[in-house]
Design a protein around this nucleic acid. Structure first.
Lengths: 234, 234
DNA sequence: GCCGGTATTATGTATAGACATATTATCGGC
DNA sequence: GCCGATAATATGTCTATACATAATACCGGC
């Protein structure tokens, strides 16, 4: 019958500490007791307190420093995390039927500026892929992608009509680091046409570049259809 | 002389496991050895392996289940984390001089639809705050906020010209949960005027609502000036 | 009073051992 | 062969202890 039930162990300690912070028993900027003192108070081992406090520090509620102790953050920096799944799963997760179509896919040689950004030699070959992702047949997002052929040779033999480049790369091209940039852009003529919106419409846009070691794996711009929003909870 | 130095302990194990996943020694979907086996292999305690693998599971690289064991995720869901600091710190972090101005601040009574969304009685009083945040004098973002007076009484005695409502609330109004929504919107006439852009310009927008227990703390829309982008690394 | 070395201290990490918990695998009964 | 009870097992958590590390506090020499 009981729905959730109170947490126990380190999670209970974590919630209790958080409650005491929010209740201003420990106001922002003040020190809280040491791990050893809290362990005595809660009747547990120091490692258990450590686990609870470490996660609160990661979340930005606490500032911890060796010897100095633990202090309640004056200006807690809330962190929002967004899961960035394969687009197919994102669409299906919104309860829509997913489909995609490959608009174009051809080999190109990169020029100076782009080559420099991707760390490629001038004239290096990339695959330029443009694709539409749809939910229940309606435009969901438009994908414009570059894939250096040398770094991801298998991409040439992939059937990108069956599996989108997005999903194929997630499955087959591991990467060690990447950067993301979200912005709002006005739709250009091409984007307006493929997304079925007016030119100049506000498009939520994701630009992403990923590397595997020192090799560029992919650079992609995903333009979401008007009305899209990215949600999260904190 | 050494710049970074190889990590040791649980972080070294974590990196090694990640490298073996990326090298396809353990391909997506396959099981990896048990914690006990890995502890033997790495010559450490099981708790050390546990710490390394737990974080990889949190990050989406591994799926772990009791008794079943640990499996490499077939479609790793990458998670992007965005720190959402006080706007002042965000502006200063970009190397600009911060300033803000209070455009308006008045008490209003909420109507039916809005009252329902915030969980307030019809006619309940809210403070409606509109403010501009600037970096080096140029518009950075426009803030349009509602604060239920009953839930955050101290807001009435705050000098919101000295400290922005954004920062005052972060310091003084704890909350237990909230939801965020990022989107792209076209600038309306008012937004265009305060942000100094053309009507219809694409604006990167953040809508956020926070609660403290069952009480709404604030609902805010932040419209960033054209050209803004939110960056992160993965 | 200032400076620099040393002691102290709180957190960070690792350890072996133990028990809890969620699943899966197995085995009997039918 | 199917089903339900039972055993086996990998992860989840906690404990007590120990040592490492970073940063502060202290104290003596000048």
């Amino acid at each position: 019958m009981s729905a959730a039930g109170e947490p126990t162990g380190w999670q209970a300690i974590q919630e209790d500490v958080l409650a005491r912070i929010r209740a201003r028993e420990w106001p922002p900027g003040t020190m809280i007791p040491t791990e050893a003192e809290l362990a005595t108070e809660y009747g547990c081992a120091r490692a258990t307190v450590n686990r609870a406090l470490r996660e609160l520090a990661d979340a930005g509620y606490l500032d911890r420093r060796r010897k100095a102790g633990t202090r309640v953050a004056a200006l807690p920096v809330r962190k929002a995390t967004f899961a960035i799944p394969v687009i197919r799963l994102e669409v299906e997760g919104r309860g829509m039927a997913y489909s995609h179509e490959l608009l174009s896919c051809r080999r190109e040689a990169v020029d100076g500026a782009l080559a420099a950004r991707l760390g490629l030699r001038t004239g290096a070959e990339v695959l330029r892929i443009r694709a539409m992702h749809r939910g229940d047949g309606a435009p969901y997002c438009y994908e414009d992608r570059l894939v250096p052929v040398a770094a991801v040779p298998g991409i040439l033999s992939a059937d990108l009509r069956t599996v989108s480049a997005n999903e194929w790369l997630v499955r087959n091209a591991p990467f060690t680091r990447g950067d993301l940039e979200f912005s709002a852009r006005e739709a250009g003529p091409e984007e307006a046409e493929v997304l079925g919106c007016a030119p100049g419409a506000a498009l939520f846009t994701l630009d992403r570049r990923t590397w595997n070691g020192s090799d560029a794996v992919t650079e992609v711009r995903i333009s979401y259809a008007p009305g899209y929003s990215m949600k999260s909870e904190i």
